[in-house]
Amino acid sequence: MRRLLAFLFFSLFFFLIKAPFYGEETAEPQIPHLPIPSPPGYQEEQQPNVNGTNSNREKEKLIFPPAQYAKEPLKPPPGIIVEDYIGHRAVDKHGSGWGWVKKPNEDWKEAHWIALKETPGGIVAPWRKLKKKTADDNFEYRMKGYIADYKVYDPHTNELLEVFVPEMIEPIGPAKPLTRKPGPPSRFAHIPEEWNPRRKVQ
């Protein structure tokens, strides 16, 4: 009997000590760590990856794409400079444009519908870090870069798109959808598009 009691006490003691090792919560953060090099100076500007307070579970689940920075400063063609922009990702069901970009002091009415210049191994469309093309629909980004002096052809819509070359993309967060429909102005203006793939720099 004593042996049985001793065994039961020992078992209880062992369970109390070792219990946390079974069914322990994962130590992995919600977002896998993505090793994207950040140049010094940008560290302070980085946004947290997960939005939020503990009070709102939905916000806790909201996954932000990581910030991305070009390995070297861009060298735009003569007459074009690298500037700050705000980007609004908008999924276009018909074509392959990325979304809208505008300068910070401009209204969204003045925004450009653009295709994003991606560099494998460098800056890519933020949705690629989230694995799903629509994952960042209506997200807004702080961006740095320039609008290129050429346009690209979208074979699915037979349209020419302006190109944004990014040097930096930082997520700001989700935003309300814009009142503008996704797509270049020529799609909605009902006027013949000026067919000139090489843009003239003003």
Binding site: S96, A115, K117, E118, A125, Y150, V152, Y153, D154, P155, H156, N158, L161, V163
Partner: peptide
């Protein structure tokens, strides 16, 4: 409508 020499080579689904 078009010959595309670099489809999905520089831009996803697009041609420069």
């Amino acid at each position: 409508a078009c010959f595309m020499f670099d489809y999905s080579s520089q831009f996803d689904n697009l041609s420069q």
